[in-house]
Simulated scan of single mutants.
Amino acid sequence: MSAVQDPATVAKCLRLGAGFSDRERNRIVEQFTTLDARLAGFHADATDMELSVKDREAKGQKVTLECWIAGRQRVVATSTEEDLHAALNDVRDDLRRQLNDAKTRQEPRNNKHLRVNEPPGPVAPTDELAGAGTTDER
């Protein structure tokens, strides 16, 4: 498998939506850098991410991180943590988990058409097993 020429990174693909300002971008990108390893398998021009928060700093705050990768279903991670920093970590970790799960589902071991299975050999009954469990002592 060849390496992606222009790999996706948080810095290239993240847009800040409602509730966030541009001056927070560098801090958020730094907090999300652990996602770069997972995103590196996708092209930057085919990957888009958006982070938003509803009711920021309120008791019902909801942080949402959405990720679109061409040819795949949209991935959404949400958090209702009251602390914004904890909520950002929560959505980051959830998105990474969902991307890992999606990749696992596409690996050959989960696709019977891509697996290489050896045909089963003939099974011969053994004398031990044929008479096992049948005792007739009356």
Score class of each variant (00 low, 15 high):
His85Tyr: 07
Asp83Arg: 04
Ile69Asn: 02
Pro120Val: 14
Ala70Leu: 13
Arg109Glu: 13
Arg72Gly: 07
Asp94Leu: 09
Leu95Asp: 02
Arg56Tyr: 04
Leu99Gln: 02
Glu82Lys: 13
Gln106Cys: 10
Ala58Gly: 09
Arg115Gly: 00
Met49Thr: 05
Ala86Val: 13
Lys103Ile: 14
Asp45Val: 10
Glu118Asn: 10
Pro125Arg: 01
Pro119Asn: 09
Asp101Arg: 10
Ala124Lys: 11
Ala124Leu: 09
Ala58Arg: 15
Leu99Thr: 01
Asn117Ser: 12
Glu82Asp: 08
Val76Phe: 02
Cys67Glu: 03
Lys62Ile: 14
Ala124Thr: 15
Asp48Arg: 15
Leu114Asp: 07
Thr78Ile: 10
Leu51Trp: 02
Val123Trp: 05
Leu114Val: 02
Asn89Arg: 08
Arg92Leu: 03
Lys103Asp: 14
Asn89Ala: 05
Arg109Ala: 09
Glu50Arg: 11
Glu81Val: 01
Val123Asp: 03
Ile69Gln: 03
Leu95Cys: 02
Gln98Ala: 08
Thr80Leu: 07
Pro120Gly: 12
Val116Ile: 15
Arg96Cys: 08
Ala58Glu: 15
Arg109Asn: 07
Pro108Arg: 07
Lys112Ile: 14
Asp93Val: 04
Pro122Trp: 07
Ala46Asn: 11
Leu114Ala: 11
Leu95Thr: 06
Gln106Ser: 13
Ser79Ile: 04
Asp90Ile: 00
Ala46Leu: 13
Ser79Thr: 04
Pro120Ser: 12
Glu66Cys: 10
Asn117Tyr: 08
Thr104Arg: 12
His113Ala: 15
Gly60Gln: 14
Ala86Gln: 09
Asp90Cys: 09
Arg96Ile: 13
Pro120Asn: 11
Arg96Gln: 09
Asn117Arg: 11
Glu66Asp: 09
Lys103Leu: 12
Arg109Asp: 10
Glu107Thr: 14
Ala86Glu: 11
Pro125Thr: 01
